[in-house]
Write a protein that binds this DNA or RNA. Structure first.
Ligand code: DCP
Ligand code: MG
Length: 1161
DNA sequence: ATCCTCCCCTAC
DNA sequence: TAAGGTAGGGGAGGAT
């Protein structure tokens, strides 16, 4: 460290941090929720610092970074781009994403957060100054001097993180999920409680958990202990949390079995831990009967153990997530609000504003599109515009919609700061705030706590969804009456293309397109707008504003100026100035993340975009985005109002109120969600062929009670998709798949925080002829029949698959758990119980023999010779066979050692392939294509649904290599087409003809200032050339020199020698297995196996356990692994930990089958 | 090149 | 207390 630059950056960073927490980053919406806290950081830093310091050297540099591959994490002092340039210029490699495979030699990060610590623990994490200083020194400086140690979050971690394994957290660059709560809500905490904030980096002098625990404490205080009148409980628990943090998610796995047994006593039977449906309903229907209810609820908790500390004292440890939830849910009000309530979904969706918004939007879209379709069917081609004529697009939008409507019933508050929210509690989200409230800085989406700080006098009104619907109905009715082409944007917002109406009067007036005609058109437009506003105001009592422009973008920008309660017509004269002085984030599609990227390249205002070449934009943002922004900056937007689009997905998700005690509760909830999804599919008249499940699991370092009441808090998100053999709507089938997926992750039910299900690859359902009615002129909030049913002949019998057979055919079936109740196991053991997802019926006698058997086997070949250690690494052939890939979420030290995201990404096909199933025929009856699945077993025996390509089994290495090769995908300069091309060779008039429906109109071009116009024309010419040239020249030739160099370098970068792939090993016998692992393991030489490697091993082990059902082999492997740890003098911490976890997992799995604990000693 | 999958991001 | 949903655009990387 110590470079000037770095010092600067430090101080800058600190300033930023201080700044951050003191004031801005005002609301959840922009600041954390969607943008992500790190984005915020990044842009702040970048702003203040000089890219200049990291000025890029262009000429031929020494390859000082040869062999180095860096990944930049979070927002860094020299920006990501600059670091990238430097590294690449000086011969290093750059990896855009970290995917758990180790290609990266170093991670560059300025700031660290707790979260990713685990994830990056085995990387070398260095400060950006390492790069900068090395470049300045002209040689590679020792990275050790640049460890991210003295700043950022956890120094003390380094104490036990020696060698090359520096374990830290960085800010990830993306994803609100991670950042949302961490960043965001620690800030909240700091403000409300006398607790030190987390992310400021100031944090605890201890380690991550400490600060999180502080957070935990606070919320416990508010949600539990305060109510209990036992504030001390939380403290105790927190302390314990702190102590035990490092064991993260393996909790019970780490427990001595004695304790586990104790726990088992506490929860003798998971069934007993939850109320059955009837009980719940009883509670629901008779909330007043406290006596009954309490009795029933008592069933949730062990007798005499109602308080948290009781349970803690009893068990002598911190509570599990399940226990925590059990206590939480023992409050009937909370129980009712959470997902364990059978009536949850209905209630939730009734109250969720975001759900309403989405539902309304979909409905409106559907109706309007149906209407448009009908219209164009009857009177064809009426939408043709006169070539070269001006366009008039209206963007109409209610002012503070929810508040405005809700205020109708509280007119006395109209000029006070008012918001609409569910309540006044700190975590209540403000759906809408009126303009007086905005004056205080309140925004839509702000949490109440923050809003109240900004404006203590804030008045809160309740939602009135029905009224919003009615207002919207009137709104759209009025809009339809304008006679324009209408496109719904949302319930309170629509686009109208009134070009025809506005220009039509030319004919009548008998004039052509002269100066005067423009005035008349604009006058007409203003008049229409005025009428429309008046009409809507009359009909709804609420104000709308209208922006008018020559395209959608302009209309939107105009709308900004129009608000509130006004209208604004954007003229070509004012356009560029107006739009140019906007912040980039005011452009549609640009929010926090894009804004940060733009700031990276020095762009803050829209006009700044004009200073940057399109190539640079495309380079930084991607082809589409780059081009779009380039155009936006010049007022160009080719999108047309009223384009027809086909729905591509149907989904349902819930990320609030998700709290489970038992697996069965979670399963039941998922079944409900599947039912809901089925309804939605049917409403849309579609079937889906692919199901994607989204699972949010509490982050390991996040408190059991997040800041928001029943919110999801900071989470890990897993997505997994399954392609079904046959499209379906059947909720039962979906449930089966979903449960299967969930089970595969082995997530402890108490840690679930969100569940989502999405169907894609939609196909229309054959419609009965009578269903094809539509086209009411007035838009009712009532579902319209489905659009196009383009064929789908089909034997429809596959449609609704019969109930699955009760039996399973796969060999493994005999091992399956007989019932469909997979909550038989103790909930507290669930984490582990699902790890290996073993049938519980395995012959105990056999298992009992295991230890000995192992011993003998193991004894036979015990140990490794040094020779074998030094053996040349095996090259495992890729593509021969893939291992089973059951998610091993809980098997592994979870996030701490294995990147769950990677797991989530593993295609299920692989698993099937390994099992030896090969896809037969996709059109197989579903009964065969999708086996009935009992919760525990079926997952591993499911038939593949589609052909499995060998490509799928790409190895981690292949992926990394491919990525390097591919990186910088070229400027696939646009397929946008002919319009620009054609236009140019011709005179503007004919050009306009060809471009009337998509391109930049000649009229518009002509109106641009000369310099801008020239620029547009030049760019079009360049695009054209590029496209043409692309066919003849290599892609590189089209690139700027710097870019070409970059790419070249990246391509040239030689990846480290490949590691053998454990995944492709065949190991039917124990010696083979051991040997394979040996080779694999020792291929690492001085480098510790990384998460991915360990994961691979875990998967293999799982396979042994799950599929081969060979516990003895598994145990043997574990014993051997332990031995390697013992023998190996290399300080492989990750490895050690992983082995430890594996041991626990195997142990649990064995025990789960009724066999006593296994000794590995 | 072009496709597909798996995300992230954005909007309301 | 509180109701943090949902669809589509598009980028990165890999397969074809
Ligand atoms: N984070 C958000 C954003 C919006 N909405 C809802 C409430 C808003 O009233 C409605 C319309 O959103 P707008 O973006 O149009 O915001 P408003 O209409 O409230 O204000 P304005 O349009 O005047 O900016 O959508 C919400 O629930 N949550
Ligand atoms: Mg509005």
């Amino acid at each position: 460290m110590g470079s000037r630059l770095e010092k600067t950056s430090n101080s800058v960073r600190k300033r930023i941090e201080r700044h951050t927490f003191d004031d801005e980053e005002g609301d959840e919406y922009g600041g954390s929720k969607f943008g992500g806290f790190s984005e915020y950081f990044r842009r702040k830093k970048i702003k203040l610092q000089n890219r200049d310091a990291a000025r890029r050297v262009v000429s031929d540099k020494p390859h000082i970074f040869k062999g180095i591959v860096v990944h930049v994490n979070g927002y860094t002092q020299p920006s990501l781009n600059d670091i990238h340039d430097m590294v690449v210029d000086y011969g290093g490699g750059f990896l855009q994403y970290l995917d758990g495979k180790t290609m990266v030699t170093h991670i560059v990060a300025s700031t660290l957060t707790p979260k990713k610590k685990v994830e990056f623990r085995k990387y070398r994490i260095v400060k950006p100054a390492w790069i900068v200083d090395s470049v300045e020194a002209g040689k590679l400086l020792p990275w050790e001097n640049y460890r991210v140690v003295d700043e950022g979050v956890r120094q003390n971690l380094l104490g036990f993180q020696e060698g090359q394994m520096v374990s830290q957290t960085n800010r990830t660059q993306t994803g609100y999920r991670e950042q949302t709560d961490t960043s965001w809500y620690s800030k909240q905490i700091k403000n409300t409680a006398d607790v030190v904030g987390t992310e400021s980096g100031l944090t605890s002098d201890y380690q991550d958990p400490a600060s999180d625990i502080a957070v935990d404490t606070m919320f416990k205080d508010s949600t539990l202990d305060v109510e209990n009148g036992e504030p001390s409980h939380a403290r105790k628990e927190d302390d314990q949390n702190q102590v035990s943090f490092n064991y993260g998610s393996f909790t019970s796995g780490d427990l001595p079995s004695a304790i586990e047994e104790e726990i088992t006593k506490v929860y003798p039977d998971p069934q007993a831990s939850g109320l059955d449906i009837e009980q719940r309903e009883a509670i629901l229907s008779e909330p007043s009967d406290a006596q009954d209810r309490d009795e029933q609820i008592a069933a949730v908790l062990p007798p005499n153990l109602v308080l948290k500390d009781d349970l803690q004292n009893f068990t002598g440890r911190k509570l599990t997530a399940e226990e925590h939830n059990a206590i939480l849910l023992s409050d009937p009000r909370i129980w009712r609000s959470s997902t364990v309530n059978p009536g949850f979904l209905k209630q939730y969706y009734e109250e969720s504003r975001l759900h309403h918004l989405s539902a309304w939007k979909a409905e409106l879209k559907s109706k309007l599109q149906a209407y448009a379709r009908e219209l164009s069917a009857s009177q064809q081609a009426r939408r043709k515009r006169i070539p070269g004529s001006r366009k008039y697009i209206f963007h109409v939008d209610f002012d503070s919609f929810f508040v405005a409507v809700s205020l109708l019933k509280h007119p006395e508050l109209a000029d006070k700061p008012v918001v609409v929210a569910h309540g006044d509690g700190p975590g209540s989200e403000i759906a809408s705030c009126n303009y007086p409230a905005r004056a205080f800085g309140v925004k839509n989406g702000t949490w109440m706590k923050n809003a109240l700080e900004l404006c203590p006098d804030l008045k809160t009104l309740p939602y009135d969804f029905k009224a919003y619907e009615n207002a919207s109905r009137e709104f759209y009715a009025a809009i339809m009456e304008t006679g324009g082409v209408v496109q719904s944007v949302s319930v309170d917002e629509a686009l109208i293309d009134l070009s025809n109406v506005c220009t039509q009067m030319h004919a009548e007036a008998g004039s052509d397109q002269t100066e005067g005609s423009i005035d008349r058109e604009e006058a007409k437009a203003k008049e229409i707008a005025n009428d429309l506003r008046t009409k809507i105001k009359l009909r709804t009592g609420c104000e709308v504003s209208i922006g008018i422009g020559g395209n959608i973008l302009q209309a939107k920008v105009a709308l900004r100026k129009a608000k509130p309660a006004g209208q604004y017509l954007m003229t070509t004269e004012t356009l560029l100035d107006t739009i140019g002085s906007l912040d980039v984030q005011d452009l549609p599609g640009v929010a926090y993340s894009m804004g940060a990227k733009l700031e990276d390249i020095g762009i803050k205002l829209v006009k700044d975009i004009r200073e940057v070449s399109k190539e640079r934009l495309i380079n930084a943002l991607g082809p589409k985005t780059g081009e779009k922004l380039w155009e936006y900056a010049r007022g160009i937007d080719k999108t047309e109002v009223g384009d027809q689009v086909v729905r591509k997905s149907v989904s349902a998700e819930v990320n609030w109120g998700v709290r489970f005690v038992t697996q069965e509760q979670a399963d039941e909830f998922i079944r409900c969600l599947c039912e809901e999804l089925e309804k939605r599919l049917c409403n849309e008249n579609v079937k889906g062929r692919q199901l994607t499940m989204k699972i949010m699991r509490k982050s390991l370092d996040s408190p059991l009670d997040p800041p928001k009441f029943l919110g999801h808090g900071k989470c890990e998100v897993f997505n997994k998709s399954v392609v079904l053999g046959v499209p379906t709507t059947d909720g039962k089938i979906l449930a089966k798949e979903a449960l299967s997926i969930l089970r595969g992750y082995g997530i402890s039910p108490g840690e679930l925080r969100g569940i989502g299900l999405q169907m894609t690859k939609l196909e229309p359902i054959k419609l009965v002829a009578t269903d094809m009615i539509k086209g009411q002129r007035s838009l009712q909030f009532k579902t319209a029949p489905k659009p196009d049913l383009r064929t789908n002949e089909d034997p429809d019998e596959v449609d609704t698959p019969k109930k699955p057979a009760k039996f399973v055919k796969h060999p493994a079936a005999s091992l399956a758990v007989p019932t469909d109740d997979d909550s038989k196991s103790n909930p507290l053991l669930n984490t582990l119980g699902t790890q290996f997802v073993l049938p519980s019926q395995t012959d105990p006698a056999v298992l009992a023999e295991l230890p000995e058997e192992i011993r003998s086997k193991f004894a036979g070949k015990s140990g490794l010779s040094k020779e074998s250690i030094n053996q040349p690494k095996l090259k495992f052939k890729r593509g021969s066979e893939s291992p089973a890939l059951p998610p091993i979420e809980s098997l592994v030290p979870s996030a701490s050692q294995i990147d769950p995201e990677v797991l989530a990404a593993l295609p299920e096909d692989l698993r099937a392939e390994v099992l030896g199933f090969h896809h037969k025929s996709p059109q197989k009856p579903i009964k065969q294509a999708i086996l009935p699945q009992s919760p525990h077993i079926d997952r591993t025996i499911k038939l593949p649904n589609k052909p499995i390509s060998t490509k799928t089994k790409n190895s981690s290495l292949a992926r990394v290599r491919g990525r390097l090769k591919d990186s910088k995908t070229s400027l696939k300069q646009a397929n946008f087409a002919k319009l620009n091309d054609t236009r140019h060779g011709k005179d503007s008039e004919s050009a306009a003809e060809t471009s009337h429906d998509e391109g930049i109109s000649a009229e518009f071009l002509a109106a641009l200032p000369e310099d801008i116009r020239q620029e547009v024309l030049d760019q079009q010419r360049r695009d054209r050339l590029k496209r043409k040239g692309g066919l003849e020249m290599g892609a590189n030739k089209k690139r700027s020199k710097a870019q070409a160099t970059q790419q070249q370098r990246v391509i040239e970068l030689a990846p480290r020698p490949p590691k053998p792939e454990f995944t492709s090993m065949k190991l039917s016998t124990l010696p083979q297995l051991r040997e394979a692992i040996t080779d694999w393991y020792h291929a690492f030489e001085d480098e510790e196996p990384n998460d991915k490697d360990v994961e691979t091993l875990c998967m293999y082990l799982r396979r042994v356990v799950l599929e081969e059902q060979d516990m003895s082999k598994a145990i043997s492997v574990v014993r051997w692994l332990l031995w390697t740890v013992d023998q190996d003098d290399r300080p492989f911490e990750v490895w050690q930990k992983a082995v430890e976890m594996l041991k626990n997992a195997v142990q649990t799995s064995v025990k789960e089958r009724g066999v006593g604990p296994v000794s590995f000693d």
